[in-house]
Simulated assay, not measured.
Amino acid sequence: MTLFEKVKWVLGILLIFVVVLTTNLVDRGNYNRIRNSVVTIYEDRIVANDLIFEISTLVHEKEIAIRTSDSDFFMQRNPAINENLNALISRYEQTKITPTEQRVFDDLKLHLTDLQNHEKEVSVAEMANNQKLRRSMEIVKANLADLTKIQLREGKREMALSERTFETINLFTKIEIIFLVLMAVLVQVIILYKPKED
């Protein structure tokens, strides 16, 4: 085997190595983007939506007790609900929060505190007709509805990101196949090419 033939072999193998390495690096980057998107959808959207649901359920219990002026509820169950609400708020703070979501979430925390303060200020008999208390309840419910919409919108955004990444992977896979076929043809030409001897 002549030096020229050895160089041809080395160049052919080196070219294939570079193509495989480049493909691997591109695929790894795309894989990481998809993995991060799926983790974000679960941890920061589905879990957050579940927390919003739990908060809404507890707020709904409060609303029923306020409308019915249920004194037993406010003496026995309400302190536990307030503790649960605070725990859920703390868990929600640990999720990834967008700037818009942070504003709504801060409003929710403020209005939940207002609601709890109004509950302490008003006697149970006056709760059903107290406008401040009812207004606080409506604002809290509106904040929860806004947070739910944000979760849906952010989940859709993450899914769109995943879909774009899948499309990129599909495109790169097609390009890789075409490139590998061209490289195989080129390697064959290099190997089989015999220069004319004079």
Rank of each mutant, 00 (worst) to 15 (best):
E83I: 04
K62C: 04
I64P: 00
L133R: 03
I16W: 14
V59D: 07
T2E: 12
I52F: 15
A142L: 12
R77K: 11
R164L: 06
G155E: 11
T68E: 08
E126C: 02
L171C: 01
S69T: 06
E154M: 07
A87Y: 11
N36T: 05
L133A: 06
V140I: 06
D70W: 10
E163R: 04
S56I: 01
V122F: 14
V104Y: 15
S37D: 09
L14K: 02
E126W: 08
K96Y: 14
L133T: 03
Q102E: 14
R45K: 13
Y193R: 04
M75N: 11
S37V: 02
V7D: 05
N117L: 13
A125N: 08
A128R: 09
F17T: 05
T95K: 13
E163S: 06
A160Q: 09
F74C: 01
I177W: 12
N86E: 13
A65R: 04
E138K: 08
N143I: 01
S69W: 10
Q151T: 09
K109N: 09
N78E: 15
N78F: 15
I81H: 14
Y42L: 02
P79V: 04
A184Q: 02
H60I: 00
D114T: 05
K120W: 07
D50C: 01
E121P: 00
